[in-house]
Design a protein around this nucleic acid. Sequence first.
DNA 1: TCGGAATATTAGCTCAGCTAAGTTAGTTGG
DNA 2: CCAACTAACTTAGCTGAGCTAATATTCCGA
Lengths: 149, 149
Amino acid sequence: MTDPSTPGPGEADPGVLAEGVSAVLRHLVLLLRRTTAGQPVTSQQYAVLGSLEQGPRRMTELAEEHAVQLPTMTVQINRLEDAGLVARGADPADARVRTVELTGEGRARLLAVRQARLARLGQDLAALTERERDTLAAALPVLAKLGRA
Amino acid sequence: MTDPSTPGPGEADPGVLAEGVSAVLRHLVLLLRRTTAGQPVTSQQYAVLGSLEQGPRRMTELAEEHAVQLPTMTVQINRLEDAGLVARGADPADARVRTVELTGEGRARLLAVRQARLARLGQDLAALTERERDTLAAALPVLAKLGRA
DNA sequence: TCGGAATATTAGCTCAGCTAAGTTAGTTGG
DNA sequence: CCAACTAACTTAGCTGAGCTAATATTCCGA
């Protein structure tokens, strides 16, 4: 068996690679679960707040972006509204449309949680060698392409 | 702005890299959600079945491995048992311990779902260039190190 | 104008996580 | 030796997050 940290050409067979990617995905999912447990917002709530950072959005947009059905997003926004983190508005051009935007408290919470998450991730990354970080940085665009078929 | 597909040294600053990794994680989570929706087992069930492939396990072991509390695993195993995919057993040496093992149907289901997942992932990977696959393969051990601090 | 399409919500289900409390079985100290 | 403690697990009851089906509202086009 060759050193997995320096795979040569030929180890990049799609079938073989899929198993490795699958295992790593499993690891990352478990890792994310550990790091997001017990935070002041759930990871879903954090993700939705992040979608609102640039300004108000429509319910349909939010549902689509997060790959959930509209009723799911309705309930999610209800919870965030109850918590005072978002506010619903109306579209003056179309009375069917509800808009959602961050409250001041919502924006503050978003920034705080993001800060904490990035700090933790930054610590993990700082523990790597510079070479490993370069390797990882090179792979990010590739990972971003997955599923864009 | 430099081409993000060919980061040079210096872009591997932990703080900057953290934001990129964070964005990619978000993408992967959404991708996983899309690909696991509507399958014959949920992703959690699939994960638990995978833990049983090598033989019977104790409840405590399973809970620890999946980073959940024991009651959560009890309910999960109840569902899998109701579905006929696993069977509970006893430890002859300690009557407090319940063991869990795959049924024939459970093993068949595990293999079928794994097959489908790997095939789909393989397709995504086949759409990449060989160079991209090499890049990805090189990054897998690095990703696997994350969170092992 | 009226019927269909679009937008959103409500209702009711399942899965999956949690804590608190209870049961049964092993372990240990007086 | 038995009483108290610990360990392993389950039950009960909560929340979050997803789904479909059904129900308003509103818009738009024939």
